[in-house]
Nucleic acid binder design. Structure first.
Lengths: 363, 363
DNA sequence: CATCCATGCAGAAACGTACCTGTCAACGAG
DNA sequence: CTCGTTGACAGGTACGTTTCTGCATGGATG
């Protein structure tokens, strides 16, 4: 009952350690550890007793000590590419938020926590945190961070297939080519004769694959490509590029925008030129934002299913960390979803007085 | 040059530790530690030599051991409230993303990393990570997590002033009352006779303060309050509530929406009822999203300046962790910004053929 | 009765670092 | 010549766990 002051130090009030619990419960340190971690062979009575004493003392095991001993920290890095000195970019907000949210949930469910670590972090920060593995979003060609991590023997799972010979443990990605081809077919089926593209001038895999898919589709159907590129990480450049695209002499009658804000950008540009959507111009953009369900008209979007990706990435990583089933698939393709709304349907749907509220964008 | 195998274990190839470096450099462990950490009094020659050997061996100090020894982990928790089992909610995407982004940058600049930890996390996850302190976003009245953390002696800084007697170390917040009052005055100045409110039915501080500010403004100017409430964490309820508000017999001629998606919700509802914005209906909503610059018409938004908040929160927390200037302000109020666009200006601006692209939403 | 195994627990060795406490040489002052 | 001083390092302990090994005890088995 009374505080047995068998502590080795005169210092008062430092947090209770495992040996304080052992002393108070009248057992050995081993027994406390086993009782609390459900290991060893102890009678239930002892186990309960130890647990109760630990509770009473407010005992909290030291994460640092445990990590040092076991070599596992329960921490997963979430690495985001940076433009300038800011972590993750303007154009990827909704995608990143959804993906990170799902990843956090998935990690948590398996007892892990996520640490946000921009790729450009100072080296000393990287080294001051004990990671069990890392998720890398859209790694660049020869990402020094990934190389370094792999060299340290840490598993690395990337969102987006690695470019070149980047030695990731596993990756998850969409089939961007199939997505773009399907989407272009959808537009063509809706009556588009000349489909334009609004794309980025960066070299990341997503942009590259999507653009080449567009070009090959054009070649297949015998259409001249009509596209404008812009630096996607610049928040104002998109509107300018959208304007350029619709100002061209060979103005397209349908446009696919590769980045999230392109939908509103294109819609605004269309209005400036007096183009009605979808009558004069069909519109699709890649976005996870639900605002496109409530625009006038609602805009068809391509969803990359960031929640599925976030979940899959974390599962793969934790499997690798825990050495579960070594010969599990190291790459996983998540299907995209085309959410068809008014902007890509040639025939305008009859105007309803009160349309039903938009449905939640679960999963 | 040759691998001096003085390692105490027969085991091969385990990561180089500090004593491997010491052996290879022909000095003691102390010297290595001092040389690498810039402490002690060593001649520059020794320091350089040790550093070089450490580099050659690919030595990476163990974060866990360092944490155990020093008691500092360099990790800051970022706690988000949850609705259901998902971290952070639909309505706060843009705000949260901006805030987290700024917080990450600020922490990084001072050598800390952020760990995402939903408030409802399993207890064992909380305990498995060694935190130096925690940022809590919008803590509820008697948040058990905050209480627990404070009891452990960890500094806690909250985004949003703590309700009741929550014992946070410091907090950062906007002056929500002033913001709402100013915004309502702005609408009144633009000619609004009856201003409605679209608000939440939750009890968090933001919603409560904003709503009471609205009510007291109404009382002051002698207007009957016209408002609808809905569960803000439900992604479809907003559209329904917006519709309800505009369907009322005492239909307002101006509306302020408290949550991010309310702008598009209200705009869509207005269209259904044939109301022109801003001619028949003035519109303002609280949002960090840039889509409202490109809607038709562009919508006036109230920005809570999440980036400033994120930065301030982290600075305050790290100051507390490092014990800098104990008597520093423990509360900080960040001014809001009303970004005035067409939707809240009575007179429609002349239609331009090509409007300039929207400006970036820096800071 | 001797042997064997399962049970219930204790002792002690790591884990890798930081830092406190020496030790030893050189050196200038008295 | 002696003595404090200072520079340059080495030794050793503590941080708080987990876990391997080992030691009793007691009942079942031959």
């Amino acid at each position: 009952m009374s505080r047995t002051d068998t502590s080795r130090r005169g210092s008062r009030q430092s947090r209770a350690g495992i040996r304080d619990v052992a002393a108070a419960a009248g057992v050995s340190i081993t027994t406390v550890s086993d009782a609390l971690n459900g290991k060893g062979r102890l009678p239930d009575a002892t186990r309960r007793h130890v647990r109760e004493v630990a509770d009473r003392l407010g005992y909290r095991p030291s994460a640092a000590a445990r990590t040092l001993r076991t070599g596992k920290s329960g921490l997963i890095g979430l690495t985001v590419t940076t433009y300038g000195d800011e972590p993750f970019t303007f154009t990827e907000f909704a995608y990143f938020a959804e993906m990170a949210r799902a990843a956090t949930s998935a990690a948590l469910a398996r007892g892990y926590a996520l640490v946000i670590l921009p790729a450009t972090s100072r080296h000393d920060v990287w080294q001051n945190v004990a990671l069990d593995g890392t998720v890398v979003i859209d790694p660049s060609d020869h990402d020094p961070v990934v190389t370094e991590l792999v060299r340290q023997g840490l598993p690395v799972v990337s969102d987006g297939r690695p470019a070149g010979t980047l030695p990731v443990t596993a990756w998850v990605d969409n089939d961007h080519e199939a997505a773009v081809l399907g989407l272009l077919d959808h537009l063509a089926a809706a009556g588009a004769r000349r489909i334009g593209l609004l794309t980025g001038n960066t070299t990341d895999t997503y942009t590259r694959l999507s653009t080449t898919a567009y070009l090959s589709w054009c070649e297949r159907v015998g259409q001249d490509p009509v596209y404008e590129t812009y630096p996607a990480h610049d928040p104002c450049a998109g509107a300018v590029a959208a304007d350029r695209l619709l100002a061209r002499p060979d103005r397209p009658d349908a446009v696919y925008g590769l980045f999230d804000p392109n939908g509103t950008d294109l819609l605004a540009a269309a209005r400036r030129y007096g183009l009605r959507v979808p009558d004069d111009l069909l519109l699709v953009c890649c976005s996870e934002s639900t605002v496109y369900a409530a625009t006038e008209p609602p805009i068809t979007t391509l969803s990359l299913k960031p929640r599925r990706i976030g979940t899959a990435v974390v599962q793969l990583l934790i499997d690798a960390i825990e050495g579960i089933d070594e010969n599990r698939p190291v790459e996983q393709v998540i299907p995209t979803e085309l959410i068809v709304r008014t902007s890509s349907q040639r025939r305008r749907s009859p105007r309803t007085k009160v349309s039903p509220p938009r449905s939640p964008a679960q999963d």
